[in-house]
Design a protein around this nucleic acid. Structure first.
Length: 307
DNA sequence: AAAGACACCAACCGCAAAGTT
DNA sequence: CAACTTTGCGGTTGGTGTCTT
């Protein structure tokens, strides 16, 4: 692939994995755990580098991986989190149980990015393209708030991932329970959109935008979202999130049919003008969609260990 | 039917952070 | 605390299948 290969010096194999190699890796990890990835290939009898084994395991062989088409809800989650976090695929993956960061990244690059572009939304900024230049003025503060949120959320996710790892180590399930303990990214700990919880946290650096509001439940959240001072820029950036008007060639009919079930059927569409007259409604629609997403994706007794 | 274009995705690479000595 | 090793992440590539001309 153009660059100097890292494994050639040891005469290690590269390229697609064979079923035999998969079987060897799977059997070894299930029996012994991966331990040191670097040492694993020799122990497992594989002519691969440890990096390749780890990648194969985390992206393909792990038992808790869901493969196949992404649901509308998953698509929405990806887009919304990407708007917030950027290309932090591992962080995004923590909110999509059973999906790998690589899979999400691929899906974004091959499907969602193009779809947003077709809808006139810049997939990098998540703003309507015509609006990109106009935003340079009074919106900068709000954009800075969004950036701040993203940075904070990124840092928080990393901290949460570390905590989860440490907890896993302390809890130390035996190697035989490989499906839950081995090489699995710490994604189960955060099944909901944590930035919302972060905002709820009294110690959060994000709470400045909502300092005057007391938040106790999702209902309050909706009021809060509608009143919040930061979501003016957010809503502009997030319009069109429900992907109405999917222009992708291979889009499946059932996906379009699903769109009413997610985002509360709000059906926010891209607005060409940026007059701001509909922003309030868009804000509510957008935040409602996130809240619906959170509600529908969170197990009944799930609560972030951090908050 | 053949050739070219496009789409998809597994797997590679380099880099940086985290961990260990 | 520096040096070294290991792990994880994100960007990118190349092979393969599908679609279009």
């Amino acid at each position: 692939m153009g660059r100097s290969p890292c494994c050639d010096k040891d005469g290690l194999k590269k390229g697609p994995w064979t079923p035999e190699e998969d079987q060897k890796l799977l059997a070894f990890v299930e029996l012994h755990g991966h331990g040191s990835w670097r040492a694993l290939p020799a122990k497992a009898g594989l002519q691969r580098c440890g990096k390749s084994c780890r990648l194969r395991w985390t992206n393909y062989l792990r038992p808790d991986i869901k493969r196949g088409k992404f649901s509308m809800q998953e698509e929405q989650t990806i887009i919304q989190l990407h708007a917030l976090l950027g290309n932090r695929w591992s962080a995004i993956a923590t909110h999509l149980p059973k999906r790998t960061d690589n899979e999400i990244k691929n899906y974004w690059n091959t499907h969602l990015k193009k779809r947003l572009a077709n809808m006139g939304i810049d997939p990098v900024t998540h703003k309507p393209k015509a609006d990109a230049l106009a935003s340079a003025g009074g919106r900068q503060n709000k954009a800075a708030n969004l950036s701040h949120m993203a940075q904070w959320e990124s840092a928080r996710l990393e901290a949460e991932a570390r905590l989860a790892r440490e907890a896993k180590i302390r809890g130390s399930a035996p190697p035989s329970s490989s499906s839950t303990s081995l090489g699995t990214p710490p994604r189960a700990a955060a099944p909901c959109l944590d930035v919302l919880r972060a905002l709820e946290s009294p110690t959060s650096t994000l709470s400045f935008s909502f300092a005057s509001s007391e938040v106790t439940n999702n209902c309050s959240w909706q009021q809060l979202a509608a009143e919040s001072s930061i979501n003016g820029s957010l809503a502009v950036g997030f319009t069109g999130m429900t992907l109405i008007g999917n222009t992708e060639r291979r889009s499946s009919p059932e996906r379009c049919g699903d769109s009413e079930n997610v985002a509360g059927g709000s059906g926010v569409e891209v607005e060409e003008d940026d007059g701001g007259t509909h922003e309030g409604e868009e804000n509510r629609n957008y935040w409602s969609s996130i809240l619906n997403l959170v509600n529908s994706s969170s197990p009944p007794n799930s609560s972030s260990p951090v908050f």
